[in-house]
Write a protein that binds this DNA or RNA. Sequence first.
DNA 1: TAGATTGTTAATCGATTAACAATC
DNA 2: TAGATTGTTAATCGATTAACAATC
Lengths: 230, 230
Amino acid sequence: MKIKLEVPNAVLRRLPRYYCEINEMSNNGVVRTSSEILATRMGLAASQVRQDLSYFGEFGLKGYGYNIYELKRGLGRIIGVYRPSILIVVGVGHLGHALLQNFNFYQEGFLIDAAFDVSAEIVGTKVNEIDVLSLDALDDYCRENHPTVAVLTVPRSVAQETADRLVAQGVRGLWNFTGVALRLPDSVFVENVRFSDSLLMLRYRITKHDEDLRRQQLRMQEQRRKESLK
Amino acid sequence: MKIKLEVPNAVLRRLPRYYCEINEMSNNGVVRTSSEILATRMGLAASQVRQDLSYFGEFGLKGYGYNIYELKRGLGRIIGVYRPSILIVVGVGHLGHALLQNFNFYQEGFLIDAAFDVSAEIVGTKVNEIDVLSLDALDDYCRENHPTVAVLTVPRSVAQETADRLVAQGVRGLWNFTGVALRLPDSVFVENVRFSDSLLMLRYRITKHDEDLRRQQLRMQEQRRKESLK
DNA sequence: TAGATTGTTAATCGATTAACAATC
DNA sequence: TAGATTGTTAATCGATTAACAATC
C-alpha cells in the first residue's frame, strides 16, 4: 500500500457518510459490495469511492469488491467508534431533550450518563435513562468522570461562557448547536451544526427555480410577439 | 458588472453563511463592513469574500466597503426571504416539537401555521401557537393552503411514503431530518440534514489526535533509547 | 488629492474523473 | 483460464488566492 500522508479535507468530510451507508447495508444483511454499488447509493463516481477509500487503507479485494463487515470494522476503527469516550449534554431545552431522547450516541462511539441544565423543574429527572443534573454540579462531575465531548444546546446568550467553562474542565470536543461562533483554543475540536443553512439553501433553490421559470416565460412571450410581427 | 452565468456550487453553499453573518452584524447595529472584516469573522480569505459576493451582484463601494443594510437586503432578496412561502412540519416527535418551539421559520422566509402527526395525544394541541393536525387532514390542508416546503421529522420507517404523499400534494421542497436517502422526482428539492455526520467527525478528530500523540511519544522513546546506546 | 477597498483577471492549488495495470 | 473489480497514476476540471487597475 502506498503511504498517503495527508487525507484531503474533501475526502474526510465524506468519511462519516461512507460509514453510515455501510453500517446501514450491514444492518440490512448485505455482506458484499463494490465501488460501483456504493457510488450509486451515495451519488458519487465509482472511481471516487475507490480513491477515497484508498486513503484509509486497502479494504477491497481485486475482482471481488468489498466485504461489508471488513469495511465497517475498518472505517469504524479509523473513526474511533470502538473506543467509546464519555459525552455529556449541556442544556436540556427542547433540542437537548430531543437529542437525549432520540439520538443513538453509543453508535457514534460515545457513552452518556449525564446531562446538565439550570432549570429546577427538570434537574433531578431522567430523560431516556440519563440523569439530568444541575449545572452547579458540572465541575464536580467533570473532575470525577472526565467527559471528552460536550453537546452544547444552551441558549445563545450563555454559549461562550458555558464553552469556556467546559474547556476549563478538560472537555476536548464540542458539538455546538448554538449557532454562536465560539472562540476557543486550537486544542479544542468544535463541530458546528448550522442546520438552518440548509433551509436557507432550500429557500434559495425554490426562489431561483421560480425566477428562471418566469424569465423563460417572458422570453417565449417576446418571441411569439416578434413572430406575429413578421 | 460582468455577467456570470453559473454560480459555482462551493460559492452557493456559503451564501447562507454570508447572510447569517451579515444579519447578525445588522442586529448588532453594525452599518458598514469590508471583505477583510467579513473574512476574519468567517475564517475565509478577503479575496474569496469579494469573489464570492461578486457572483451575486455588486454590493460594495470602492474605497468604502459594504453597507450592511444593502448587503443584507441584496442577499436576502436573492435567497428569497422577502417572499415567504408556506411551510408545514410533518411529524411532531421530539425533533419536530423542538423545531416548532425554537426555530424562527419566518426569518428564513417561511410562514407556518400547521404541523401534522398521527399521535392522538398531540393532535388538537398547539405548539408555539401552531396547530397540530392529524395526518389524515394533510391532503385537505394541502389542497387549501398549497404549502411549498415540508419539514420531514417522521420516523425512518415511514419517511419515503410520507415524502411521496407530500410530493403528490404539490410540495416542492423537503427539509429531510430522517436520515433516509429519499427517492423523489428531480423537480423536488431536498435538503438532507445529517447532523450525526459531524459528531462522527468529532469522534474521528479526537481519535486521530490521540493516535498522533501516542505515535510521537513512541518516536521520542525510541530516540532516547538510541541516544543512550551511543 | 491620498488612502482605502472594491471587482476582476490570471496563477495556483486542490479535488474529481478516466484509464489501466495488477490480481483475485 | 476468463471475467471482474480493485488501487493507483495521470489528465481534467473546479475552487481559491494573489495581484492590481479602477474608483470612491
